[in-house]
Structure formats: C-alpha cells, structure tokens
Design a protein around this nucleic acid. Structure first.
Lengths: 191, 191
DNA sequence: TTAAAAAATTAATCTAGATTAAGAAATGTT
DNA sequence: AACATTTCTTAATCTAGATTAATTTTTTAA
C-alpha cells in the first residue's frame, strides 16, 4: 500500500532503508469517497495527504457565496492547506474529493518528528516544494498574460487527460472565470 | 557581512556551527546598483541570492512588448528564478535591481553540495519554501477574488512601507493592471 | 423509466479594466 | 538653471468577461 509513496520518494532521494520505513510506517491509509471533505473551512488542517488514487479540489467561498477552486490534486501529489497545517490557523479553504479516492496521511506532529531526524526526507520535501514553487510561478505568469481562451487552451495542452476528470464548472472556476464563459469558449473552438 | 544571513537562518533552524560556517563561507558578496540585471531572459540562472539590502523585481516581456512584474524581493528574502536555476533551462524572466542593493549569492553546484550534507540547512530551505508556498497560494486567492481596487488596498495594508519604494507602474504591473488604472484608483481613494 | 437534481448551454445586457493619446509632474543630467 | 527623460494623470472610447435568466442536457437516485 505504501509502495507507491516509496517509489515516489526514491525518484528524488535515497534515504537509508530504516528512515524510509519508519516514515512509511506512520503514514495512515484512508478511503475517501467522492464529495467527502478532508478539510472544511474554519477547521484546523491536521494532516498532509499523499494521493494514491483519485482527485481532490481545494476551494473557498467568496463574499458573493460563489465557490472558487484554488487547486486540484491527483495521483502522486502531496496535498494540504499549508497555511493551516504549518501555522495551525483555521482554514479558509475546503478540500473535497472530486472522485472516489485513496490517500496516505500524516499528522504535523509525526511529520515534524521525522523531519528532525532525516536529512534525505527533508531533501525530498524541499525538492517537492521547489517544484510546487515553479508551478505556482508559472501559473501566476499565465494568469497575468493569457486571455480566458488562451488559459483554457494551455490547460488542455498541459493536462489533456485531466480535463475529462472534473466538471466544467470546477475547471472554469480554477481558471478564474464563469462556467458561462467557458461554455462560450468551447463553442467557439468547435465552430 | 554574512551575519545578517546567519541571523536569518538561526530564526528557523539550529545547524551545528561547522555546517553553518561552511555554508556562510561559500556565499559570495556582490554590490548591485539600481537598474542592473542579475538575470536576463534566455540566460541560465546560475545563482540563488539572499538580499542583504535593497530591492529587486522579476519580470518578463509579454507578446505585446509590455513588462509584467511577477515578483518583488527585499531585505532578508531569497531570490532566484527556480525554474531556470533548478532545471537549468533558459530563463523567461529578468531579475533587475529596483534600488542600489547588496546580495549574497551561491551557485547551484555549491548549494547542492551543501544540501547533500546538512540536515538543518535542508530544513531551513524547506521551511522557507513552505512560507513561499503559503504566500503564493494567498496571492492566487487574492487574484481570483479581489477587484483591482481591493488588490491595491490589501497590498497597501500588508506592505505599507514598501508601496513608497517602487514606481507605481511596477506596482500596477505586479497587481495585474495598467498604470492608468492604478492612477484612477488612487484618485478615487483621495476624493 | 421516471422524477428530480445537477451540470451545461445560449443569448441579452452590463461593467471593470484596457487602450489610446495627450498633457503634467517629477527626476535625472549637463 | 535648463533640458531630457522618466513617471504619473486625465479623459474618451472600447472589449473581455460577468451577470442574469431561461432552456437543455446529463446524471443521480427512487
């Protein structure tokens, strides 16, 4: 069950077997069904999740009561609300399964303990975060320059198989516009 | 000269003195005057910079030839183009001093060597990146929900002293709109 | 297998912010 | 002090995308 996470870790670093095992041993498996929440607004985010299978979205509700999707997460991604997890503050975000999913989770306490000891696992998480930073930067760059239509086109190019996986209104929200406008774009592209 | 960086590190982690010193010893000091570039489009980003004093902006030129400011960096921040630095790809970003500045820099090779050895410095950079991630997420959230006027208001609240430090056209660009529109906002707020 | 709920489309209208173009301040340089 | 350059402002016009509201299609569940 933890084989998948082990493989992922070994792609980036090579910890001593003992460190790796004691990390994998504290990861807890959980089945999450579609639409189930693993974090709700105002809760304290207690876990960092590694997605074995399935799909999640994190979103918040804006002043007008509209859902805004901030992120998606799929297989082999780490997922949490860092702000709430790290700083132990109430979450502004919800995290909800967008498919029937399976995860491994670890509490802050246990993760902290491990990261006090293991050089390689610190390297691992540092490297992951560097990748996240690169993705965030690219996303911000895209948000600045691309029109709605271009955003959609680029997203489809970069994530061809993912586009089918979530409802369009979530995708529209993630890309920063309304479902009506996405509909307009899609129509235009077909004609 | 490296005292400032040492203090910064010790705020977050407690490496053995020897590790800390060998890290500080490889940091190279550099004076950068206003408007000087430390990275230009198409170059490979060779260094990660710690800003001792001054201010930098990173920006790119969009298809229409307009400068888009992606980030600012000030005292006690680490600055680089991660995509170019980590993946050794040609940079799409420029990084330019917005004031006369002083930095400490380190090459990828040397940083990698150090991070192969030091648990605590891995922790340090991991913790920094977690903070960066939180900031990026918050920024994306703001970009989604806030109007131009609200973005400006929030930015002024969070960075009251910084607003004075850079020309308004850079700020407008960073916030994602035109200098003309920022001018409009500012006028409206005074009346 | 049909009702009900959720998701997607269409079209008309509306608005935040872009664009263009000009002039006014501010800043830098000799 | 005077010129050039850079930055900021104003105002008129324009447009990408929002909003509203009705309709259709798809999915879910009894």
């Amino acid at each position: 069950m933890t084989e998948q996470l082990k493989d992922h870790i070994l792609k980036f670093v090579t910890p001593p077997e003992s460190e790796l095992q004691s990390f994998l041993n504290v990861m807890e498996f959980e089945n999450i069904e579609n639409k189930q929440y693993i974090l709700k607004e105002r809760q304290y985010c207690k876990f960092q999740y590694f997605i074995l299978k399935g799909c999640f979205r994190s979103f918040f509700i804006n002043k007008k009561g509209v859902e805004k999707v901030v992120n998606f997460g799929i297989e082999d991604w780490w997922l949490t609300n860092f702000d709430s997890f790290i700083n132990q503050t109430p979450s502004e975000l919800n995290i909800q399964a967008a498919e029937d999913s399976q995860v491994l989770k670890i509490s802050k306490q246990k993760l902290d303990d491990i990261l006090k000891e293991s050089l390689e696992l610190n390297r691992y998480f540092r490297i992951i975060l560097e990748k996240v930073r690169i993705a965030d930067q690219r996303r911000i760059q895209f948000m600045y320059t691309l029109s709605g239509e271009e955003l959609y086109t680029v997203f489809c190019e970069y994530n061809p198989d993912f586009v089918q996986r979530v409802p369009q209104y979530m995708l529209a929200s993630y890309l920063g516009f309304t479902p009506e406008f996405l509909s307009k774009i899609r129509r235009k592209r077909k004609l």
